[in-house]
Simulated scan of single mutants.
Amino acid sequence: MAVFTPVSNDDARELLQRYELGELVSLRGITAGIENTNYFLNTTRGEFVLTIFEVLTAEQLPFYIELMAHLAERGVPVPHPQPMHDGKRLTRMHGKPCAIVTRLSGGYEPDPGPGHCALAGATLARMHLAAADFPIRQPNLRGLAWWRQTAPQVLPFLDAAQAEMLHSALQEQTAFTATPTYAALPSGPAHCDLFRDNVLFDGTYEAPRMGGFIDFYFAGCDTWLFDVAVSVNDWCIERETGAFIENRLLAWLDAYAALRPFTPEEKEAWPVLLRAGALRFWISRLYDFFLPRPAQTLKPHDPRHFERILHLRRQVAAPRLP
């Protein structure tokens, strides 16, 4: 999240006239992230988040907005998109699509312990199961097709060893998607970006309570195992090396599997999907770092972090799924 499109108090007041959310109290830009414009929007009736979509189109957005509504209505702790007077959940501001969603309580935990990992793993399993009957289908727009399209754009910034790893990793993922094992993997709507800063917790560090999942705007239909792999590649690692921290990883995977047990095909595919999760974010961070879009407050991540993780996942045997 970032601030690409300025929004004034008068803009917010005009927008609120389309809703039954009360009158504007305060508006504050959110500087974290790199994809959309986000503001904390407080009104006389509650606390909300205003998102202006800078990349996703009005045709793509119903998947994300309706998925969040679908999950929220089934008790999964996610932001609930608010309807306007006409019942629609999407509108426009400054010529761009936008939406207002409920603001969840809590804050993100930068150094999660096993208790946080277990809560996040269990909630992701709940999300997958609740999304299984979601009727809209849209692929993960940052999936393999996007990796293959984007890799040539970042190659000029890589040295020979980096370029070789990128090429061979893409080859592996392309070949794997053509296998019967891949075809048998359970799939459906997935978050696809469940990093620790996209999960909020209440309570204390020793006794955390789930606040909810946020930032669904990279979601798409993909294998659920890819969603798990992306998550544990962030939640369950030593930041400096990318190596797994065993008690965090076991807590995450055991809690997830208690609600949705892993299949034999998923257990076979696990090492490849861990590499897929690392590859996806290495490519996107290379792209955001070397080919950034103009923004008022933009903080691109260091792509070397996921380069290290991908290298490690290619060198060290993956832990088994429960």
Rank of each mutant, 00 (worst) to 15 (best):
Y108R: 02
V78H: 01
C117A: 15
T91L: 12
Q60W: 02
F63G: 03
H116M: 03
P97R: 10
P79H: 05
G121T: 10
A58I: 12
H116Y: 08
H94L: 02
H94E: 02
T102M: 04
P77K: 12
F63M: 10
L104V: 03
G95I: 12
Y108P: 06
A122S: 15
M93Y: 04
I100M: 04
L104T: 09
P62N: 01
C117G: 08
P62R: 01
T91P: 12
I100V: 15
G121C: 13
F63A: 05
H85D: 09
E109R: 10
D86A: 11
M93N: 02
A58R: 15
H80K: 13
L71A: 03
P62F: 00
H85K: 15
P79W: 07
L104H: 06
A58H: 12
D86V: 11
P114E: 10
M84P: 01
G106E: 00
L90N: 12
G106A: 09
V101P: 02
E73F: 01
P112E: 01
Q60C: 08
I65P: 04
T91K: 14
I65Q: 01
A118K: 05
H116D: 12
Q82E: 14
T91G: 05
P97G: 08
R92T: 15
M93H: 11
L124Y: 06
P77G: 05
Q82V: 06
E73P: 04
H94N: 11
P79M: 05
H85I: 12
I100F: 01
V76L: 13
M93S: 12
P112N: 14
E66H: 15
P97H: 06
L71G: 10
A118M: 09
D86M: 03
P112T: 04
G121W: 00
C98E: 08
D111Y: 10
G87D: 09
P110V: 11
Y108A: 03
G106Y: 01
V101N: 09
A120V: 10
G121H: 04
Y64I: 02
A72K: 05
L124C: 04
T123Y: 11
F63S: 07
A99H: 00
R103E: 05
V78I: 05
V78Q: 12
H116N: 06
K96Y: 08
P77S: 15
A99T: 03
L61Y: 07
T102Q: 02
M68Q: 14
G106N: 06
P79V: 07
A118I: 00
F63H: 05
E109Y: 03
D111F: 09
L90Q: 06
S105E: 14
M84W: 02
I65C: 04
R103I: 04
R92I: 00
G115K: 14
Q82I: 06
P97C: 12
A99Y: 02
L124V: 04
L71Y: 05
I65Y: 01
G87L: 07
Y108W: 14
